[in-house]
């Protein structure tokens, strides 16, 4: 990998990660660098190891080999709070929880901070506002729509104020307009200096972040490619990865869309 002219801070460095789950090799020697001010999209078929890689980066998945450093410190040496100060994670599946209000859900993201009730509430409301769902604050979480819940959970992710966000298919449950909004928000955050790793099946969304973006393709636990979003060969690589034919349709403004077709 070429060294950028002005290297930005390394939010996470994964070196040759290997992991087994339930007797299956799910990660084989995956190396990845996540930098501040960069959006990294992780693509791959179902079962290719995307969520496991996120698990390895938060220390939830035991590693057979390799090492993860977060902000320069080895992940294995970090306590729970120190880890939470370096990386926040939005799981793929929203929790089923009853009896909590939206703002109480967001407040769980502030666990790592020792702060009073007022400060806690203020920060949680700010995070809800950032995601555009401040009016939901006092609603019961279980009574919200799927899209509303997802946005409350994104607010909880932001409330943790970690420099690295790991996001597992966050656009699920969102309607198209909200998906664009979400990636626009990711773009804002990245331009503010966060690093974001986002698992997605829809690379066309990435343009809406309007931020430096890489796309990493994972197949059977191996990293197949790691390319800038603007790379002209990306369409072909995506096609190989998903086993489909991919045609790039370049629109005005230079944002390509990908049209998928079945292989003959």
């Amino acid at each position: 990998m070429s060294t950028p002219a002005r290297p930005s801070a390394l939010a996470a460095h994964a070196r040759a990660l290997s992991a087994r789950l339930g007797g299956q090799q799910v990660l084989c020697g995956v190396s990845l660098e996540l930098r501040a001010g960069e959006l990294c999209a992780l693509v791959g078929c179902n079962g290719s190891g995307k969520s496991t890689l996120l698990g390895a980066l938060t220390g939830r998945v035991p590693l057979q080999g390799g090492e993860v450093t977060l902000g320069g410190s080895p992940l294995a040496a970090l306590g729970a709070r120190a880890r939470a100060a370096r990386v926040a994670w939005l799981p793929q599946h929203p929790p089923s929880v009853e009896g909590l209000t939206a703002v109480e859900v967001v407040e769980t993201g502030r666990f790592r901070f020792a702060e009073g009730k007022e400060a806690l509430r203020r920060e949680a409301l700010r995070a809800l506002e950032r995601v555009g769902v401040a009016p939901l604050a006092q609603r019961r979480f279980e009574q919200l729509s799927g899209g509303e819940r997802q946005r409350v959970l994104v607010a909880s992710l932001l409330a943790q104020q970690a420099p690295l966000l790991l996001v597992d298919e966050a656009a699920n449950h969102l309607d198209p307009a909200q998906q664009l909004e979400l990636y626009a928000l990711f773009g804002e955050l990245v331009r503010e200096g966060l690093a974001i790793l986002s698992v997605t099946h829809d690379p066309s969304l990435l343009h809406f972040s309007d931020a430096p973006t890489r796309v990493c393709g994972l197949q059977a636990g191996r990293l197949q490619f790691d390319l800038p979003l603007t790379d002209p060969a990306l369409g072909q690589h995506l096609g190989l990865l998903y086993g489909v034919r991919v045609e790039s349709l370049v629109r005005a403004g230079g944002r390509p869309l990908w049209a998928l077709e079945r292989l003959p």
């Binding site: 939830r60 729970a80 929790p95 769980t108 666990f111």
Partner: peptide
């Protein structure tokens, strides 16, 4: 009470938020 609230939303999520589960 506070870590228990985080645990309500799932153990792995709570752990990623800094709770020593």
């Amino acid at each position: 009470a506070r870590p228990l609230t985080a645990l309500l939303l799932g153990e792995e999520r709570a752990s990623s938020q800094g709770v020593a589960v």
